[in-house]
Amino acid sequence: MIFHISSRTGVPPYLQIVHQVKQDIRLGLVKGGDKLPAVREVVTMIAINPNTVVKAYRELENQGFIEKRAGIGTFVTKQPAGPSPDVQSALLDKLEVWMEEAKNADLDEEAVEALFHTAQRNKRGDQRGTDGKK
């Protein structure tokens, strides 16, 4: 598994690792039972603080994507948490309908992205409870 860290995103490096592992699992690049590189290997590969890697792995463990086996290493869990392919493709269909509407309304890709991120942010605000919103 190969990691990349960009310092221009505003996303903390540990979260970038979390996202990359999850993405690779989704894309099927790593499968249940595969071994993740040891902390020291990641450190050597991308010149990164070991605490950052530890933090990322801990986060992935909490989310159920990976598990530690004492003395052997860190492995991708057999059944990665997350929605089934059916649910995902149903959601994708709905999104494509929406995309068509946006296109008909003359929204360009950037406008679509802006709306998407706003909706995502609003959603995040909802989840935090009522004190986040006025």
């Binding site: 450190v43 050597t44 603080n49 070991p50």
Partner: peptide, 28 residues
Amino acid sequence: AQAVTDADGELTVIMSSHLLADLERVCD
């Protein structure tokens, strides 16, 4: 970063620099 890993929490580093992008990955 390797030295920090090998020291297993026993090494503290303070590093001054102007190269901010580099620092983000190595410094916590």
